[in-house]
Design a binder for these strands. Structure first.
Lengths: 371, 371
DNA sequence: TTGAAAGCGATACCAG
DNA sequence: CTGGTATCGCTTTCAA
């Protein structure tokens, strides 16, 4: 503390033999500086190993060059069990890395953490906020509305329509998954749902109903779960108790599907001969189950990347950040991701993979992330 | 920008009818302030919804109240596939939440990100750094040494002994796993290793050798992998090609073990009758495989928590942060976590679970995390 | 116990 | 194109 301390811009300026103003100009942008001075300042910076103090800079620029990702979930186990979160983070980070923005991670599970988040939101510590995994009536929602920085939601909050969010077409994806089961001749199709206090849970459930409805099949074989493996085990067992005749299950997340497979094995069901299973979400889990899981692929990293891009646009003052016509037409900033059913052995008689049946509004493609 | 703006401490002071100095004293600590003034300031803060600017505060205090977690891995897929990272993050966050410290997450995969990290380290942006998952010769190692803030390593870097790190007893855990296989009568035991440019990979491999060595069994059935599922598939297939007679496999990570199981199934091996499998690491993956995986349980969240605690100690100026006698004796700050073999169906003839055979140096217990 | 004033390390404006 | 100066919002010393 009493030691050398980091070099300041004044020392740089002195060593370079220029004024502090000139040094500053070189550091940012470098416009309006003579080549000679430019050179000298650069050399001084190099020699002193100078790095500007971000605190000082923030104080005057009123920016922080940092954004926050808040993951609001009462259940930290979900965060560890569900690769979804890691993938979103990777997607976000990919975009952020290109902008020299730093990422603050806030896990909003406990009251303490929630307070911490509140403080971060209001202490001009970050220039933007991304909110992930909001449940119904989440206090974070209100909290974020009060923030004076842009907010982007990952996954539409239940029951409200925030100005800016990124979401996948969960309903359409689920519909595809179940349609796939119908196509392969299944008649008594059940579902293990996600949490019904989240839009993602409700939407996938609706997709399930959609598909069965238009196929003229009953849709009463339903058990709720909350994306944890434990809840899926309970739900699957429950389904088998109540509907021993079921011949297929759509499980609203791969991590849950893996757990459900265990229950099915235990109960002596052969897969896919007796019961076909389709999951939803990621790919890694799907491939290590036995048999490999048929699943609807969701480009989660792209979702994270899109969140970050949208936030950057907002921070830059651009309205929604999309050249997409669907959005320009007064549409809220939703990104409907394309889904692909990945055929694996969990469903008999595979048919060729097909794309989303959603007609338009799917113009944003992130091929670099897919697969 | 031209709008209201956040309230400043001056406005608080004015509204409370005191000087700025007094207001500041109330905000931090509240000592040497008359009860009357104290009260008034508090009310003004409440009324104005005042939150101090962290940038301004940092500028004068020279602290940031933030720490960084840098995850250096060239393969982002690992981060998403391996629940290990999420668990460490949760463990860290649990501790941090109690200290009002913020967490910056830096994924150090690309060159760009590495530069970003370098900048963060040297721009007094964080008060401490945690480094996770360093590979051999990782440039991050040198980088962190130059940082003028405390650094804690998660997992010992290969070949060097940094002043402060937290690690689990990977060698002992692996030894236990393999001893377990020996105990159940297996003779031709193979291993799928972790990356051999990381201490964790080498240590677990040594544990494998240790156990086979003292049992008088050969230890040549080895295939290397890098913790990804894809690499495990290759390694397992390779093992079966080279040693079709193997009757057990120790796989150095559960995520890899799950993948290996798939290969074994494919090749017609019955588990555990033909081949017994033991994994290492987490519990969630272990339970959703078929059959459920026998594994060595590692308290990963505790590891993360310990990293954070150690960093906090260092930041507070305390030498290593442990009352542990083993550490007081000039020992580096290693935390040897206890391991438990979790019995599942992947190994035949289960014996009662047993604890680590390591005698001492295991005094730190995080029972709240275990199980 | 309190108020006044001096910085912390940058940026940005404004004459020169 | 450059140098000086005000300023960002807070903590902290120093007198009173």
């Amino acid at each position: 503390m009493a030691g050398a301390g980091q070099p300041t811009i004044d020392e740089v300026a002195r060593l370079a033999g220029v004024s502090r103003g000139t040094a500053s100009r070189v550091i940012n942008g470098g416009a309006h500086v003579s080549p000679a001075a430019h050179e000298k300042v650069l050399k001084a910076i190099e020699e002193l190993q100078y790095v500007p103090s971000r605190a000082a800079r923030s104080l005057v620029t009123q920016r922080n060059d940092a954004v926050a990702l808040a993951i609001s979930d009462a259940n930290p186990r979900l965060f560890t069990e569900h690769p979804f979160f890691s993938e979103v983070i990777v997607g976000i980070d990919t975009v952020l890395a290109e902008s020299d923005l730093e990422l603050m991670l806030v896990l909003g599970a406990s009251v303490r953490e929630r307070n911490r988040l509140r403080r971060q939101l209001s202490s001009r510590r970050v220039d933007g906020i991304m909110l992930l995994s909001l449940h119904g009536e989440d206090p974070l929602y209100e909290l974020a509305e009060q923030a004076d920085v842009p907010v982007v939601y990952g996954g539409k909050p239940l029951g409200v329509e925030p100005p800016h969010y990124v979401d996948a077409d969960n309903r359409g994806g689920a519909r595809q998954a179940v349609e796939h089961l119908v196509t392969t001749g299944r008649q008594r199709i059940a579902t293990v749902t996600g949490p019904m206090d989240m839009d993602v849970g409700v939407a996938r459930y609706h997709g399930f109903r959609d598909a069965l409805g238009s196929a003229g099949l009953p849709a009463h074989r339903v058990a709720n779960a909350d994306f944890t493996a434990a809840s899926a085990v309970r739900a699957m067992a429950d389904l088998l108790d109540r509907f021993p005749d079921l011949d297929a299950v759509f499980v609203a997340a791969d991590s849950m599907a893996a757990a459900a497979l265990g229950v099915l094995h235990e109960r002596g069901r052969r897969i896919p001969q007796d019961v076909a299973v389709v999951g939803f979400d990621d790919r890694a889990t799907a491939l290590t189950t036995h048999p490999p899981l048929t699943t609807v692929h969701q480009p989660v990293q792209a979702l994270g990347a899109e969140m970050a891009k949208m936030l950057l646009s907002l921070m830059a003052g651009r309205p929604a950040g999309h050249a997409d016509p669907a959005h320009a037409a007064g549409h809220p900033a939703i990104d409907v991701a394309q889904f692909t059913v990945t055929e694996n052995e969990c469903v008999a008689r595979p048919v060729p993979p097909f794309q989303s049946s959603k007609p338009a509004s799917t113009s944003i493609s992130h091929h670099e992330f897919w697969r």
